[in-house]
Design a protein around this nucleic acid. Structure first.
Length: 696
RNA sequence: GGCGCAGUAGUUCAGACGGUUAGAAUGCCAGCCUGUCAAGCUGGAGGUCGAGGGUUCGAGUCCCUUCUGCGUCGCCA
């Protein structure tokens, strides 16, 4: 079975040639005497024509009854189309294959939905039939685009001397970070592997081993709740470099992203990627992942005279808070309801309220603030925030972290409102100097903001145990369009510093030893200074492909409850498997599992032995009835179990008897002696199987 | 776990104030049709209005409970 070419790749060069094409029936146009079929494969569409003038009667009959999404192989001659029948919408629109012979390779049954026009179909249905869903051009294009991104990355990493090394999927659970996916060990009852949240420790150990430059397109697992941009298993480009400083890693990453953007999007970036320290990003954009597709900067006005004149502001300042503003150029005429919506939104983000100024083009300042603030001070304020007549200015005053959150959220909301978040624009940003720790109120301890292997700034070493919140780390993020693409850091390569960081996180010496002993140990045998990065490949592809959900760039994604509608994973397993793993389920989830048993009980009720007995003209006692019921149920469940058995690829069995079975065409020609045949008989006499008498 | 949106034919959707037999498009089945390209025309089948309860003479529509999907917050070093 050979095709001449992909459907979508035929051209006028093939005209006049004997041609074979294979593909899926996308649409059929049956004119009665002539039938057109759009045959598609991954490369595109080809029109094939059935006409009794040149098509065999069998092939024509096939074309009449074939249904959409069936697979066909057709043979015929390629013709140039008449000028008026050319279809400019498809690449092969100037030619058509006139079919002489056709084979139905596989018929398509009733479709749950038509993949040719499935863009609006319910997502859960699409995911249940993901193989059909993936026939859609849009998804196919996404998956192929993803492949282009990964190959571009691999080419770059290769050229830069990085070595692709695989790291374990079955590994050790570590207490920091996200919830682990656990895998029970059969050989070590009660012990568990964890699936890696990232190859973090292994890549650091590869640096200790001297590989110098490592990368991997690695699957990572985190057992946390899903979002449109978050899957429980996802893919990272993971890399690590030795004998480097932060600048080296940032330069490499920037070059990588430039390379990829040019490769897959044809976009060349003239300027260096904008860089901010964490504090700058938080102050100017109210976020550690600023969306730089638009400006709308946040401006601090805490020190202005105008602020001290308005008591709502001045009280905040006296309490150590800040006052900040965002200017919307040309938006002086926002409606009252829009302003109210923005105010409600600010309040929902934690603000107490939202003051604002509409500076009319006439120069009139329209605002409640004019009642409290002298005009000259108000003008100074407007100058500070860069406003001009015709602009709208809004304010947030509160504690620093609240103002950052509120202004950051407002800025994005305003960006959406004004249509500034252009999906065709790709704005990168680099954020550095993250705080080393943050305080976790729930656990009443500090946790690492990046991860505990991040090197603090040397000048902050002394605060590690005295004032952890003051410690900055040599960590950095790459941000694209307001989404965190990934993060990295220079790592700790000295065991003494690593130990102090663990102590700052509140880990006891014993915990440190048990959980991380191997890496602290490794650093005792000569470790290079090293640093690296990991970025979310799925997210990068999603943004570049212009999709809103990771599910549209992953071939077989999970849904919101982390399950897979197609395979029904995760699923319960039988007792035998659990026993082997020394696992017993909590009482609380038993009822769920006992559904199978309920089914059994239902069957018991349906099984009317008395009636069976009457129909068989048998008289049975009550005791026999119960026994019979049990035996029958046992038989039924045995049949069920047999039904479940996967017999694909199992050797057929043979009967030694001479009798013919019309269904069983295979024959076993081995000669069988009587001894062989009776080998398992409980009792045999003179080559006969002895059967004890049943009826006296 | 909280909040929001959605659930009506295989699919995508409409369904006023609660009122006859719940509609459309598409798909499916049958018939017609030799140049279509989202082919067209004629006819037909197809519904537990997510499920359960309530109010009512009467519920797709109102009320309560519940299930499912999506989004969002918590969570995600």
């Amino acid at each position: 079975m050979k095709r001449t070419n992909y459907c979508g790749l035929f051209s006028e060069r093939d005209v006049g040639k004997r041609t074979t094409a294979c593909g899926w029936v996308e649409t059929k146009r049956d004119m009665g005497g002539v039938i057109f079929i759009d045959l598609v494969d991954r490369e595109g569409v080809l029109q094939i024509v059935f006409n009794p003038a040149y098509t065999s009667p069998e092939a024509f009959a096939l074309a009449e009854r074939v249904r959409n999404q069936s697979t066909l192989m057709v043979e015929g001659e390629m013709f140039l189309r008449d000028e008026e029948t050319v279809n400019t919408k498809i690449d092969t629109g100037t030619v058509e294959l006139r079919v002489t012979h056709a084979v139905l390779l596989s018929a398509c049954g009733d479709l749950p939905f038509n993949p040719a026009e499935a863009d609006d179909v319910r997502e859960d249905l699409r995911l249940k039939y993901r193989y059909l869903d993936l026939r859609r051009k849009r998804l196919r294009d996404n998956i192929r685009f993803r492949h282009r991104v990964t190959s571009s990355i691999r080419r770059f990493m290769d050229d830069e001397g990085f070595i692709d090394v695989e790291t374990p999927i079955l590994t050790k659970s570590t207490p920091e970070g996200a919830r682990d996916y656990l895998v029970p060990s059969r050989i070590h009852p009660g012990s568990f592997y964890a699936l890696p949240q990232s190859p973090q420790l292994f890549k650091q150990l590869l640096m200790v081993s001297g590989f110098d430059r490592y990368y991997q397109i690695a699957r990572c697992f985190r057992d946390e709740d899903l979002r449109a941009d978050r899957q429980p298993e996802f893919t990272q480009l993971d890399l690590e470099m030795s004998f480097v400083e932060m600048e080296d890693v940032l330069t490499l990453l920037e070059n990588l992203l430039r390379h990829v953007m040019l490769d897959v999007k044809g976009i060349r970036y003239a300027d260096p990627f904008p860089r901010f320290t964490w504090a700058e990003a938080m102050d100017r954009y109210g976020s550690d992942k600023p969306d730089l597709r638009f400006d709308l900067p946040i401006v601090d006005i805490t020190d202005l005279k105008a602020v001290s004149e308005f008591s709502v502001f001045s009280k905040v300042v006296e309490a150590g808070g800040v006052v900040r503003a965002i200017t919307l150029p040309g938006q002086y005429d926002l409606t009252r309801s829009t302003i109210n919506e923005l105010t409600d939104f600010a309040i929902s983000e934690g603000a107490g309220g939202m003051a604002w100024i509409a500076w009319r083009p006439s120069g009139e300042i329209y605002s409640i603030l004019t009642k409290y603030i002298e005009e000259q001070n108000l003008l100074e304020l407007l100058r500070r925030v860069g406003a001009e007549p015709g602009d709208f200015v809004l304010f947030s005053a509160d504690k620093l972290d609240i103002v950052r959150r509120v202004t950051g959220a407002l800025r994005l909301r305003l960006g959406d409102m004004l249509g500034l978040r252009d999906p065709d624009k790709f704005a990168f940003a680099i954020v550095t100097d993250f705080p080393m720790f943050e305080y976790n109120e729930e656990e009443d301890r500090y946790t690492a903001q990046h991860h505990p292997f991040t090197m603090p700034f040397e000048e902050d070493f002394d605060y590690l145990l005295t004032d952890p919140l003051r410690v900055r780390s040599q960590a950095y993020d790459f941000v694209l369009n307001g989404t965190e693409l990934g993060s990295g850091s220079i790592r700790i390569h000295r065991s003494d510093i690593q130990t102090r960081v663990f102590q700052a996180l509140g880990l006891s010496d014993q915990e440190i030893g048990e959980r991380f002993g191997f890496i602290i140990n490794a650093f005792k045998y000569g470790a290079p200074p090293h640093g690296g990065f990991a970025f979310g490949l799925d997210r990068l592809v999603m943004i570049l492909a212009g999709e809103q959900s990771l599910r549209d760039v992953i071939a077989f994604p999970k849904i919101r409850d982390a399950s897979c509608p197609m395979t029904d994973a995760p699923s319960t397993v039988d007792e035998v498997q659990l026993d082997e793993l020394s696992i017993c389920l909590a009482d609380a989830i038993r009822p769920e599992r006992d559904r199978a048993i309920t089914k059994e009980n239902k069957r018991r009720a349906e099984l009317n032995i008395k009636r069976l007995a009457e129909e068989s003209r048998l008289q049975i006692s009550q005791k026999d009835e119960a026994g019979m019921q049990d035996s029958l149920l046992e038989l039924i469940s045995f049949a069920d179990a047999l039904h479940e058995v996967d017999t694909d690829g199992v050797e057929p069995t043979y009967s030694p008897s001479e009798s013919h079975d019309v269904w069983l065409t295979e024959r076993d020609d081995r000669a069988l002696t009587a001894e062989d045949a009776l080998a398992n008989a409980p009792e045999s006499r003179q080559q006969f199987f002895f059967v004890p008498p049943v009826v006296e």
